[in-house]
Amino acid sequence: MSLLEARDITKKFGGLAAVSNLSFNVNKGEILGVIGPNGSGKTTVFNCISRFFPLTSGELYFKDQRIDELPAHKICDIGIGRTFQVVKPLKRMSVEENVMAGAFLRTSSMHKARLKANEIIEFCGLEKYKYREAKSLPIPLRKRLEIARSLATDPELLLLDETCAGLNPKESEEAIALIRKIRDAGMTIIIVEHIMKVMMGISDRILAINFGSMIAFGSPQEVSNHPEVIRAYLGDAYA
């Protein structure tokens, strides 16, 4: 069953179509990888799904409910969580408070929000930093905090934007392990990442875009052998 479906979505900034006529779907329980060169529109797709940007045209459905006219804060409420490529920690709040801010979506009780936050902090391996102010965290932990905070809102679909960017190989591996753990807990995930090896290994299906348009959509095998993808990444000589 399709959890999320995009039908011909287009987003224009003035004359520039950052996303154009893109259609894809995400099945429940799968990891969908989105790849594309810099500036190809990956983050814009996330911003459209999470309603940070209004669509220029097209439709978005989540569990068969139309979502492209909902206010942005409702998106999280119906079960779509996201992280930001350029992390946005609640800087002067502690790690625990950051995660609690997410947990409050499903409860008004301080006690329950704290319990929930602590559960998730442990799941994400952030116990040691629980009382640290978010602004004092190094990048890998900030990225982890983005995920933890978003998990605290109990999403069914998680949008992860370049969780591994700026991390060294060991840190990347830890991040990937966390993402696998989240998937094994039953989460559906759309992930954007630049490291091909990671994307090929973790994704069930891959959507490749360039200049905002789809160039390939299918299994990692199919997509990595697709001539358009090779051209977009390596240039005409290799296609």
């Binding site: 999470s50 940070f52 206010p71 942005a72 804060h73 409702k74 998106i75 999280c76 409420d77 969580g81 996201r82 930001f84 946005k88 920690p89 609640l90 801010a101 997410g102 979506l105 905070r149 978003s150 605290a152 809102t153």
Partner: peptide, 9 residues
């Protein structure tokens, strides 16, 4: 933005 992404109106 982070607040909005956490479902805060």
């Amino acid at each position: 933005d982070a607040a909005t992404s956490l479902g805060i109106p």
